[in-house]
């Protein structure tokens, strides 16, 4: 490889390296992944994100909450919460929904609520951001996703 090629390669690398943190910031806001991760130089810029998971069996128009702490899907739920706190919306709850429907075979569907606890800079208090997924039995894709 010639020196000229190597110089251009370094310049391209540096341009990409300089562009990535700005891209990282936009993506982290949009997809809600952990800003501390993925080499965006945003460590110590935000509190580490906390994620809580709630679920409910669906029967027609009614929903019956699942006590996940005492559920056979506890470990899967914990693993998913950890994964979601890092990857944000890049970790959708489809697998968890399928697993829960196997554990609760009578339900017609499953509601999964993902609560992100974020520090609100205005009030300096922890505020919830909820995303609710509604799954029907037999369908892997959610019927709807609501963000509160």
């Amino acid at each position: 490889m010639s020196l000229g090629f190597k110089k251009h390669a370094v310049v391209v690398l540096l341009v990409l390296f300089a562009a990535w943190p700005a891209t990282h910031h936009v993506l982290a806001q949009r997809y809600q992944f952990d800003p501390w991760r993925f080499f965006g130089w945003a460590m110590y810029s935000t509190p580490d994100p906390k994620v809580e998971i709630y679920a409910a069996e669906v029967y027609g128009e009614k929903a019956r909450p699942i006590d996940l702490a005492n559920s056979p899907a506890l470990q899967e739920t914990k693993d998913f919460a950890h994964r979601r706190s890092i990857l944000g919306k890049w970790a959708p709850p489809h697998d968890l929904a399928e697993s829960l429907m196997q554990h609760y075979p009578d339900s017609e569907g499953m509601m999964i609520q993902i609560r992100r606890l974020v520090l609100d800079p205005e009030t300096a208090t922890i505020k919830p951001q909820d995303t609710v997924y509604r799954f029907d039995r037999g369908s892997r894709e959610p019927r709807f996703v609501k963000v509160h």
Binding site: R115, L117, L119, T123, A124, T125, I126, P128
Partner: peptide, 8 residues
Amino acid sequence: PGEGAGPY
């Protein structure tokens, strides 16, 4: 820690 915690 948790919902409503603060003010920080």
